[in-house]
């Protein structure tokens, strides 16, 4: 489902060129759940960004559902994301001007799906927010906001879901609820899940666990 070979990412800073990813080889199969752990600045989020096609690598290959996304331009990658990819972010990334329901509807609308409203209502109900359709993000608690984000991620029924520190901004209890929801939906929908986290407990719930150290990735056995 996801495959990279010799993935390298360099960025230029004022002083010198910095190699953030130093030749990553990775393969994750359809329906698998995988966690990437590592210290801050080790390159986890950069890798996630590349896998999701949010950024282009300096060199190397990335294949997503059989498509080499390195050869795609930004717009083609965007279309690919709208068809196959979902996201959950650490800081939720809900649009403040939109209600919970509208936030969930947004990717469906972007993908031109007809029954965006019905689907969104269904997923919001599934994350337990059936009563909060018309609430704005600022009136929701952190846990509720992340549940809206999860509903948004699953509503477009992506093949792959990327989660960047999904519990990073939440307390332990709320975090646990959100994680249960994430894995539950993942199982029901059969999605491939790739998450980046500091939380070993969360990483342990994944079938596979990778550790990122200074731009190198190793799979923990």
């Amino acid at each position: 489902m996801i495959k990279t070979s010799q993935l390298i990412k360099r960025v230029s800073t004022a002083e010198s060129e910095l190699e953030i990813l130093r030749g990553i080889d990775l393969e994750i199969k359809r329906g698998e759940t995988a966690a990437i752990v590592g210290a801050s600045g080790s390159g986890k989020s950069t890798l996630l960004g590349l896998l999701a096609g949010l950024d282009a690598p300096s060199s190397g290959e990335i294949t997503l559902d059989g498509i080499n996304i390195v050869n795609l331009d930004e717009d083609e990658r965007a279309i690919l994301r709208s068809e196959k990819v979902g996201f959950v972010f650490q800081n939720f990334q809900l649009l403040p001007a939109l209600t919970a329901l509208e936030n969930v509807m947004l990717p469906l609308e972007l993908a031109g799906i007809d029954d965006a409203r019905e689907k969104s209502e269904e997923f919001l109900a599934r994350v337990g927010l059936g009563e909060r359709f018309h609430h704005y993000p600022r009136t929701l608690s952190g846990g509720e906001q992340q549940r809206v984000a999860i509903a948004r991620a699953f509503a477009s029924r992506p093949l792959i879901l990327f989660a960047d520190e999904p519990t990073g901004n939440l307390d332990t209890t709320t975090g646990a609820t959100v994680v249960d929801l994430l894995f539950g939906l993942n199982q029901e929908e059969g999605t491939t899940l790739v998450l980046v986290t500091h939380d070993n407990g969360l990483a342990d719930r994944c079938q596979r666990k990778f550790t990122m150290t200074a731009g190198h990735l190793e799979e923990a056995s």
């Binding site: 999701a52 949010l54 930004e74 717009d75 965007a78 279309i79 690919l80 994301r81 709208s82 068809e83 990819v85 996201f87 990334q93 649009l95 001007a97 947004l106 990717p107 972007l110 993908a111 948004r152 477009s156």
Partner: peptide, 16 residues
């Protein structure tokens, strides 16, 4: 800016 970044991550193209 943030709104557009989110929309693009959700699959909106530059043209859209």
């Amino acid at each position: 800016t943030d709104q557009v970044a989110v929309m693009k991550s959700l699959g909106a193209t530059r043209g859209t």
